[in-house]
């Protein structure tokens, strides 16, 4: 396959089937552990909008709590776009600003980097969501897509934290396709993806490539099991392929439970093997 012959349509999915499998997953994985409700942090971006809408379809809009968690530097667009989703899909909602949580910690170090501040914001939001999980009686639905998880473009124990993740096996371009099919407003689907941790941040600027390009590469590397040199032969720039692979490898830790040092005959993670759905 030559890159210019490969179009983004190779990644296209049947959205009816995706909807059926993913809503079934949410309903099954909540109900079997005794939950009927869910909590989603709604950022105003496409990923959390999609998780929220899938959850509403799976368990009913009245059983989904969408939480908006602005920081003082967050853009007004983010807040407005989250509100569009809340109104259009009729889920329950709550707005809990995190500025007063985050700022005292940030103030301890005047030299603090953007990355540190961003991580603090992401982890404050995690605390709010897990507190609402207990208060609302719902599990936290994950909002990370496959592209982001592979790249490690998230804060561990921050936005990466969730109870179940319905969209983690969909690439960003597939998230866009499914979001359109589910009627998520165009302004959310079409805007430049951003973590909105600082002013004018965009994912693609920060990553240095577009989601469309990296999704095509991932499709060959991960789904089609191409070797690196075959991706280069297919038309991808060698440095691009190498740097993406390095990122994927370096971020493996974010995709795993912390390793436990084995000393006994039977150790969690190695030879104590049960699914989470054990007994349900």
């Amino acid at each position: 396959m030559v890159l210019d012959k490969m179009t983004i349509s190779d990644l296209s999915i049947n959205t009816d089937l995706a909807r059926k499998i993913l809503t079934g997953f949410i309903k099954s994985e909540l109900n079997r552990v005794g939950f009927t409700r869910a909590v989603v942090g709604l950022s105003g971006g496409i990923d959390s909008a999609l998780s929220c809408v899938l959850a509403a379809e799976a368990i009913g809009k009245e059983n989904v709590l969408a939480v908006r968690m602005p920081y003082k530097a967050s853009s007004q667009d983010s807040l407005d776009h989250a509100q569009l989703v809340i109104e259009k899909f009729g889920v329950q909602s709550l707005t809990i600003p995190i500025t007063e949580m985050a700022d005292p910690l940030i103030a301890l170090d005047p030299e603090m980097s953007k990355t540190r501040k961003g991580n603090i914001m992401a982890r404050c939001r995690m605390i709010v969501l897990y507190d609402q999980s207990e208060s609302f009686g719902g599990l936290v639905i994950g909002t990370g897509n496959k592209t982001e998880i592979l790249l490690g473009y998230s804060t561990i124990y921050g936005d990466a934290a969730s109870a179940i993740n319905p969209i983690g096996d969909l690439y960003k371009t597939q998230v866009r396709q499914l979001s359109r099919a589910l009627g998520i407003p165009e302004e959310i689907v079409d805007k430049a993806p951003s973590a909105d941790l600082w002013v004018n941040q965009t994912d693609e600027d920060e990553l240095g490539f577009t989601y469309e390009d990296v999704d095509k590469l991932f499709y060959l590397l991960i789904d089609q099991r191409y070797r690196l040199e075959e991706c280069v032969e297919a038309g991808f720039d060698q440095n691009f392929v190498r740097s993406v692979m390095r990122r994927v490898q370096r971020n493996q830790f974010k995709r795993m439970m912390p390793p436990i040092a084995k000393v006994s005959n039977r150790t969690i993670g190695y030879d104590f093997l049960y699914l989470r759905d054990w007994g349900t």
């Binding site: 349509s9 296209s12 999915i13 049947n14 009816d16 089937l17 995706a18 499998i21």
Partner: peptide, 11 residues
């Protein structure tokens, strides 16, 4: 186990 979600009405 279901796998291979493509642009088709079945996996």
């Amino acid at each position: 186990p279901g796998r291979g979600l493509k642009d088709d009405d079945r996996l």
